[in-house]
Design a protein around this nucleic acid. Structure first.
Ligand code: FES
Ligand code: FES
Lengths: 168, 168
DNA sequence: CCAATTCCTATCATCGCGATAGGCTTACTT
DNA sequence: AAGTAAGCCTATCGCGATGATAGGAATTGG
């Protein structure tokens, strides 16, 4: 499960990307718009600021603002900064690596072999998507909503398991 | 993080796939070979039995055994049976779906849009890999270990982010 | 009958997570 | 200078999931 911290952060960043022109936006404004607990969001935005993604100004007319262009914000970094590495196994994290005590040989560990692919696939998506791209996709999704043209189409995917479309 | 329950289960299944010919294998044997707490593994194998993957026999010479061929065991089902759905968001699970209270419109939710791809990629791997394939990969990995021929090669992947190889 | 093994229930300790409380600091407005 | 709106920071709390253990009942081979 993606932690609430990261979910809220992503929502807030999308919101801020949309309001780049408005100058600093106060926490209360974002929280109200996105239905996020104010004090919790406060802590989140603070972390994002300390990690360099946001700027802040205090006092009246203060608030938060994107420090960098949305095209340069990789969503994987956002999640990592707030919720730590997302490796499904300790032995797969580069920044927080530590050996799996239960495994004798890392090189021939079946669990590791399987999850390494999962991890790689995940990173390819979250690190390969920028905030700008996400905003664009939301817009596209909203545009095609009235139409029966749901989701983004990926018709040529190649049969993987020949079974049914995967669930859950 | 993949729960210990699922990690242990995968290891045990690989072990059992390797010892298919030996007849029933007692829990203690698997636990010793894979360094898994006995009582914990006991509970895990019991669940796997109740979900139809394993057979058991009691008494002396008893133990656990694969009920079906390793080619028909999809690893995603193993994980699901033991640790529940692996959807990164409640709104992405088919079997345990429930609406995200914090999100106004599911169709235009940025978080959902991003994680849907992650989820799909994960399922494509875990449900697209069978126990037999995993065993084969372990063998292949063990064979190429002495050689500099590490991991499975996927040379043509297409530039995704043009950045560095992803970390964590 | 005995011993080995599965089966089942209950219980525990710990930890991470989501969230809140309370106060301090900065800075704009009047 | 006062007042106030905002960010900044630390501490704490409740809760549930997780990993693990205890103890015993049921089954079955020798
Ligand atoms: S799971 Fe990390 S080495 Fe086996
Ligand atoms: S995260 Fe599920 S609808 Fe937004």
């Amino acid at each position: 499960m993606l932690p609430m911290k990261s979910r809220y952060a992503l929502k807030a960043l999308v919101f801020l990307a949309r309001h780049q022109a408005d100058g600093p936006v106060p926490v209360a404004g974002i929280a109200a718009a996105e239905a996020i607990p104010v004090k919790f969001l406060e802590a989140i935005l603070l972390e994002l600021r300390n990690s360099g993604i946001l700027t802040s100004r205090r006092g009246p007319t203060g608030g938060y603002q994107l420090r960098v262009e949305p095209e340069t914000v990789h969503l994987g970094d956002v999640i990592r900064n707030l919720s730590g590495p997302m490796a499904p196994l300790p032995c797969l994290s580069k920044t927080a690596y530590h050996r799996c005590t239960e495994c004798v040989d890392e090189a021939t560990c079946a669990v590791r072999l399987l999850m390494a692919d999962v991890h790689a696939a995940t990173l390819r998506i979250v690190d390969g998507t920028t905030l700008a791209q996400l905003v664009a996709r939301v817009d596209a999704s909203a545009a095609g909503e009235a139409e029966g043209q749901s989701e983004r189409c990926r018709p040529e995917q190649g049969p993987v398991s020949a079974k049914l479309d995967f669930i859950d």
